[in-house]
Amino acid sequence: MALNNPWLVGDAPDRRLPADRLEERIRNLLASQNMCVLATSGPDGPAATPVRYYSLDLAVMFTASPRSPKMRNLAADPRVSIGLFAPLVGLASSRGAQIFGRARVLAPDDPEQVPFWEAFRWENEHAERGRPLSEPPAETLVVVEPDRIVYTEHWLRRDGFAPRQIWRRPQP
């Protein structure tokens, strides 16, 4: 029987990608998608919330209403897990990431928001809400800078690399 992807047959390799190549693939995934699932934990247990996001380097950011359940959960426990993935056609196209880190909630007047707003396409949200594009955002911004990322891409097997790669924040 002819196979489209004969490199998927047999055991998966265990070779690690060099860090710079892994980071490039993660950045590509982050830049090519715009929806993720944010997992938080609160008094009622875990909650998984679909969120539209933007990225800056390896950080994921999104806006949120301060009164939302996810924000109440983040106030109680800032540890989060984020799952995102590219559309799946078959095993060869399997590509996604699990991001683990702590959420930082930046109030509308927090100067730490500035570099993130520059990468956030806030004009889209302003247009959707009928807000003038001449007024910059004045919203709560949530930023998750990862401590660890589990990246999965089965196409890596083709070049002899493990389909699951682990990125960890370098220690100072």
Rank of each mutant, 00 (worst) to 15 (best):
V9Y: 10
Q171Y: 15
M1K: 07
R169L: 08
A64S: 04
F62N: 00
R72V: 03
L141E: 00
N28C: 05
V37N: 03
S134F: 11
L156F: 15
P69H: 04
R129K: 15
W117C: 10
W122F: 15
G90Q: 10
R168Q: 08
I26K: 04
A76Q: 02
T152D: 09
P50C: 09
S81D: 05
E139Y: 04
D11V: 15
D159E: 10
L17Y: 10
L84Q: 04
D44F: 10
L58S: 00
L156Y: 10
D159S: 13
I99S: 03
A19C: 07
D57Y: 07
E23Q: 14
V143M: 04
L29S: 03
P115L: 09
A48F: 09
A127G: 14
D20V: 12
P172K: 11
E128P: 14
A19V: 09
L84A: 06
V143C: 01
L30W: 06
V60R: 00
N73H: 08
E24F: 13
R67L: 08
M61K: 02
H126A: 15
R129N: 14
M1V: 09
R158H: 11
R95E: 05
L141D: 01
P69N: 02
W167L: 11
V114M: 10
R21H: 08
L8G: 09
V142Q: 00
L30E: 03
R21G: 08
S32D: 11
R164F: 12
N124G: 15
L133P: 14
P172L: 11
W122R: 14
A31I: 06
S68P: 00
D20K: 14
G96K: 11
D110V: 03
A12C: 13
L133D: 11
I99P: 01
A127N: 13
L88I: 11
V80I: 04
R67S: 02
A2E: 06
S93N: 09
P115A: 07
A39D: 05
P6S: 13
S68V: 01
L74K: 00
R27L: 06
T63Q: 02
E23A: 11
